Amino acid sequence: MMRFAIVGAGAIGCALAARLAYAGADVTLVVRDPARAALIAGQGIACREGAVSYVARPRVARTVPDGGVDVLVMAVKAGDLPAVAASLPQGIGPQTLVMPLVNGIPWWLAGAGGETIQAVDPDGILQRRFLPEQVVGSVVYTTATVEGPAAVRVTGSQKLVLGALCPDRTAAVAALAQRLRAYGIGIEVCDTIVDAVWNKVALNLATNPLSVVTGAPLGQLCSDERLQPIVSNILDEAWRVAARYNARPPMTREDMLNRGRAAGAHRTSMLEDYRKGRPLELSAIADAVFELAARVGMDLPVSRAVVDMARFQTMPPVA
Rank of each mutant, 00 (worst) to 15 (best):
V213P: 02
A286D: 14
T314V: 15
A216V: 13
A265N: 15
R295Q: 14
H266A: 14
T252Y: 00
L221S: 11
Y245L: 00
R259W: 10
A286T: 02
E281V: 03
V231S: 07
E281F: 06
P250Y: 04
W239H: 09
L300H: 04
D255T: 00
A262F: 14
R259D: 04
Y245R: 07
G277F: 15
R311Q: 13
Q313V: 06
E272H: 02
M270D: 02
T214E: 14
N233H: 07
A263M: 09
L257K: 09
E281N: 01
T252V: 02
D236M: 15
E272Y: 01
L282K: 09
P316E: 09
M251H: 08
E272W: 03
R275N: 11
I285N: 15
G264M: 13
S303Q: 08
A288E: 11
P279F: 00
P217K: 10
M256I: 04
D308S: 08
G260T: 01
M298E: 07
I234V: 11
G219D: 01
Q228T: 12
S303D: 09
A238D: 13
E237F: 10
E225C: 11
R240W: 00
R278T: 01
E225Q: 11
A305N: 05
E291Y: 13
H266P: 08
A265I: 12
M256G: 00
R311L: 10
M309L: 15
A288L: 05
Q228C: 04
E291D: 13
R304T: 02
I285D: 13
R259E: 10
V289C: 10
R244Q: 06
R244I: 00
I234E: 10
F290K: 13
Q220C: 14
D224K: 07
I234T: 07
P249V: 03
P301T: 04
D273E: 06
R259F: 03
Y274T: 05
N258H: 01
V231F: 06
L218N: 12
A310V: 09
R261S: 04
V306T: 08
L221I: 14
A216N: 09
A247S: 11
